[in-house]
């Protein structure tokens, strides 16, 4: 039961002159077969990517009129919570006045809101630490020392601009892609 190289088998060896041509043909057919296997595998793999109906739902419109100042709403977008907070004048001022050097991930408030719509902060409501959903969007929730959001899992705290102010989260809350369709309506995605 000893294994020997397959080439040493069979009646009559191929002639040496033939060998080169034969190897080339084997190479070509092997390459073509590899392409074939890829062509079979790709549709299988791609079928697991988001389908057309999932992609078609990848943007949502949100009406802002029912949100009073100082409160927020949570909307589902691509299966994730998005926090939309109507900030008070005081909260806006706090967010704008903070020294960038104090921040864990320095970023001015103006880069996190849309110009002319300072009162609206829109962030993806997932803690950048380990993916929990921070509290603070409901009036009864704890909002942490900086008046924004507070993550119950490991105590990360965010300010009213969604910037992380107290670890262990390393980064500010992510901003979704969104645009104002009118003063009272945004389209996320």
């Amino acid at each position: 039961m000893s294994a020997t190289a397959p080439a040493s088998h069979g009646p009559g060896h191929p002639h040496a002159a033939d060998q080169g041509k034969r190897d080339f043909l084997k190479l070509v057919s092997g390459a073509a077969a590899a392409i074939g296997v890829g062509a079979i595998a790709w549709p299988l793999i791609d079928s697991m990517n988001p389908s057309a109906d999932v992609l078609a739902l990848s943007s949502v419109e949100v009406d802002l009129t029912p949100v009073p100042a100082g409160q927020g709403i949570t909307v589902a977008w691509r299966g994730k919570p998005v926090f939309v907070r109507h900030r008070t004048e005081k909260e806006i001022k706090e967010a704008q006045d903070v020294k960038l050097s104090e921040l864990i991930e320095p970023q001015p408030d103006s880069e996190r809101v849309k110009a002319g719509h300072d009162q609206w902060i829109v962030v993806i409501g997932i803690c950048t630490h380990l993916g929990c959903i921070p509290l603070g969007n409901k009036p009864t929730d704890p909002r942490g020392d900086w008046g924004g959001w507070f993550c119950p899992c490991h105590g990360s705290q965010y300010d009213t601009s969604g910037r992380v102010r107290h670890g262990p989260a390393p980064l500010n809350l992510y901003l979704p892609q969104y645009a104002f369709e009118s003063d009272s309506k945004i389209k996320i995605g």
Binding site: D18, V28, S29, A32
Partner: peptide, 25 residues
């Protein structure tokens, strides 16, 4: 495209097969 590719592959494979079998009597 798939049919053309397979036709080509069939041709190549057949030529290889003929060569491999050329020493069998």
């Amino acid at each position: 495209k798939i049919i053309l590719f397979l036709a080509m592959l069939t041709g190549i494979t057949y030529v290889v097969k003929r060569r491999v079998w050329s020493d069998v009597h």
